[in-house]
């Protein structure tokens, strides 16, 4: 009789072959783009016998991106938007999630219902009137206007709510008996217990802000205020001819987020398993 949990050698080989196949499909395109970005002007990138390893690797394309578009400024703009988004979500999703989960007050169910209700609304549906709101606040064509609406996402409030709700009630009661204030209970007792979910909220907020395209495309009109994604699209519109340059540009946008993710992936996956995505 075969036991589950101890795969046979044949099964293992098959599993690894499948894993490698999926790896090529998911990561291969990134490596091809990296390879293209490192190929010099002398190397034919359109050849019908594709070469994966650049014959004379060069960083020339990367410096040329900086000549074509103000890429450092775009990185700065994207970082500013991302930090505002992460900060707002960490702070306000934590406080709201905590209050709804751990404090009894009149209207709590209505507040929770409001946050839940907006979840079914696709963001694109309100993007036009959101632009009108931002414009009326005098924030059209500004980075503050790009960051503002995303600084508190209903989903993050609900994620924090779920995490706080899962903590045992006795911990709070003991702290109350000891005379701890709400702030002390939140910061010293509950928050350390939900670090996993907090990490998920932070990582998701950063990625979402850094990767966003449609909203900054609508809000921003001056090229010097572009975020990196809008700037990349601008680069590809002006320099469609040179794929090496576009490849270098995409790598500039991708590498920081890849590094951030690989540094935090352990806490990310742990946070997700803790119940980040469970209802």
């Amino acid at each position: 009789m075969k036991k589950i949990g101890e795969p046979s050698t044949g099964e293992k080989v098959l599993r690894y072959l499948l894993l490698l196949l999926v790896l090529i499909i998911t990561v291969g395109p990134f490596l091809w783009q990296l390879s293209t970005s490192l190929k010099g002007a002398g190397e034919d990138i359109y050849t019908s016998t594709p070469q994966f390893i650049p014959s004379q690797p060069t960083l020339n394309n990367y410096s040329q991106v900086a000549d074509a578009i103000p890429v450092w400024r775009y990185i700065g703009n994207s970082l500013l938007v991302a930090f505002l988004t992460v900060g707002g979500n960490i702070l306000f999703a934590t406080t709201a999630g905590y209050a709804i989960a751990r404090l009894r007050f009149r209207g709590r169910r209505i507040v929770l219902g409001l946050f839940l209700g907006t979840l079914i609304l696709p963001g694109e549906v309100t993007i036009i009137s959101q632009y009108v709101t931002v414009r009326d606040l005098g924030l059209a064509d500004t980075l503050a206007g790009v960051a503002l609406p995303g600084m508190v996402a209903a989903l993050n409030v609900l994620l924090m709510f779920n995490a706080f709700r899962a903590l045992p009630q006795e911990v709070d009661e003991a702290a109350v008996v000891d005379g701890a204030t709400v702030a002390q209970r939140l910061l010293r007792v509950s928050l350390p217990a939900v670090r996993g979910t907090l990490a998920v909220v932070a990582i998701f907020s950063f990625i979402q802000a850094w990767d966003d395209f449609l909203w900054p495309l609508i809000v921003l009109t001056s090229p010097e205020k572009y975020t990196l994604t809008v700037g990349l699209q601008y680069l590809s519109g002006t320099f469609t001819q040179d794929q090496r340059l576009i490849a270098a540009g995409t790598m500039i946008a991708f590498i920081p987020i890849a590094i951030l993710f690989s540094a935090l992936q352990r806490s990310f996956f742990k946070g997700v398993e803790e119940g980040g995505v469970k209802g």
Binding site: F213, S236, F261
Partner: peptide, 10 residues
């Protein structure tokens, strides 16, 4: 985690 713009251009 990659931006739709990045993978779109890729």
């Amino acid at each position: 985690i990659a931006s739709a713009v990045v993978v779109g251009l890729m």
